[in-house]
Amino acid sequence: MLPLEQEIKELIISSLALEDIQPADIDAAAPLFVEGLGLDSIDALELGLALQKRYGVHMSADSAETRKHFASVQALAAFVAANRKPSLST
């Protein structure tokens, strides 16, 4: 799942305009919110939209399950891998 984790790190950086951070700076197992990367609820909404656009996944904004998926890059990658819609391109 490492290529997907790399894609998600790049998506986090681009969708949240984190100019001073490189993908290698993000620990895939580290928390994304509060400690770790230090994202907030607005970042979660923006990231959720970016994931929905890119991978066709859908998450409920107030779900405890969604909070679990946003725990780390690894958790997001596992969620995306299990729920993404097949690519329409061949």
Rank of each mutant, 00 (worst) to 15 (best):
I8F: 02
K9G: 13
E10T: 04
L11Y: 00
I13C: 09
S14H: 09
S15Y: 04
L16Q: 04
L16S: 05
E19G: 14
E19Q: 12
E19Y: 07
D20I: 14
D20Y: 14
Q22F: 11
Q22N: 13
P23Q: 05
P23V: 00
P23S: 07
P23F: 04
P23W: 02
A24M: 06
D25N: 08
D25T: 03
I26F: 10
I26T: 07
D27M: 00
D27Y: 00
A28W: 01
A28P: 09
A29Q: 14
A30T: 13
P31M: 04
L32S: 11
L32R: 07
E35G: 13
E35L: 06
L39G: 10
D40E: 11
D40F: 08
D40C: 00
A44H: 09
L45T: 15
E46C: 07
L49Y: 09
L49M: 14
Q52E: 15
K53P: 02
K53R: 15
R54T: 15
Y55I: 08
G56T: 11
G56D: 04
V57M: 10
V57W: 11
M59I: 13
M59K: 10
S60W: 00
S60V: 05
D62S: 14
D62I: 04
S63P: 11
A64H: 09
E65W: 07
R67A: 14
K68G: 03
H69C: 10
A71K: 14
S72D: 14
S72T: 12
S72P: 12
Q74W: 00
L76A: 14
L76F: 07
A77I: 00
A77Q: 01
A78G: 10
A78S: 13
A78D: 15
A78R: 01
F79T: 03
V80Q: 03
A82Q: 13
P86Y: 01
P86E: 09
P86N: 02
S87E: 14
L88C: 03
